[in-house]
Simulated scan of single mutants.
Amino acid sequence: MDLQIRHLEAFVALCEEGTFTRAAARVHVSQPSLSRTIQELERVLDCVLIDRSARTPGPTASGELFLRRSRAILADMTELQAEMRAQTQVRVGFAWLLPNDWFAATRERYEQLGGQLKLLRSDNPTADLRDGAVDVAVVRNVGPVSGSISWRPIGAEKRVLAVSARSSLARTPGLRWADLAHHPLVINTESGTTTPDCWPDSAPGRETVTCRNLDEWIELIAADRGIGAVPALAAHRAPHPEVVYRELPDIPDSTLYLGWRRTPEPSRSTRRFLDAAVELLDPDPSTS
């Protein structure tokens, strides 16, 4: 048997605690198990480290030397572990426009814990999550349900209507969401929030124009190929000179989701990020 970290931890605990009972409790083993570990250690080193003749067990002269070196090694191991964990990056996939307040608070909280985040924009972060290219994903469209991925709703986002500046809808007074059920619709199939199902009475055979990302979607709206709806933060963070964003009284909210792989199980760093993210959710969170 070779020298192992558990030998060092058991020996240091015994020397510092002064009894086998307290030392065993400190390293979370039974007292007989701790005694066997100390005996193994002495056999591995071929020397007596503990003076068992005294009322309170303590280190021999050889044990004193081993105690000093063991403490230094364990301190170095703790420091190395902390340094390596700090190098670990949790990869966060997103399609567009991360939510403001919640994500900023989550990032700050996670970095306070010593973690690092790497943001990766993707047309389809759900597929990247499934393939292992990212560790977690923040999405508004989860796509086909997969048993290997867990999804947690993290907020409801207010949405706004998006229309071409050339469209009469940009200036129509008293416009409501229900009035738009027959208009051509631009759909971002990968990461969008709006489909004909968002209207309970959407016209059968309604004209739709599809695209795969936000940039294409905005240009199609600007070209007056159809209407669309996006979270309200797009009005400030994705402006376009040929696109008008309008608030409507009856436009439905969209849901924001946080996803992670269930299999294989998340790494310790990913789990810490998820804990920080969920901890900062309000009972009725708003991410708009």
Score class of each variant (00 low, 15 high):
217 W>P: 01
198 C>K: 11
205 G>Q: 04
196 P>E: 05
219 E>P: 04
206 R>L: 14
201 D>Q: 09
195 T>G: 04
216 E>A: 12
200 P>A: 02
224 D>H: 11
217 W>A: 09
206 R>M: 14
222 A>R: 11
231 P>T: 08
210 T>G: 12
210 T>M: 12
199 W>Q: 01
230 V>W: 01
203 A>H: 02
234 A>V: 13
196 P>G: 06
198 C>Q: 09
227 I>D: 03
226 G>I: 10
228 G>W: 13
197 D>S: 06
231 P>G: 12
233 L>D: 09
227 I>M: 06
223 A>F: 06
195 T>L: 02
234 A>R: 00
215 D>W: 07
221 I>G: 03
220 L>H: 13
198 C>V: 11
203 A>E: 10
202 S>H: 14
223 A>S: 14
235 A>H: 05
196 P>L: 04
195 T>A: 05
230 V>H: 02
195 T>M: 04
217 W>H: 15
197 D>E: 05
233 L>Q: 12
234 A>C: 15
198 C>D: 09
209 V>D: 01
199 W>F: 05
195 T>H: 06
212 R>Y: 12
196 P>V: 04
201 D>G: 00
216 E>Q: 15
209 V>T: 12
217 W>K: 08
223 A>Y: 09
235 A>M: 13
222 A>T: 13
209 V>M: 06
204 P>K: 00
202 S>P: 03
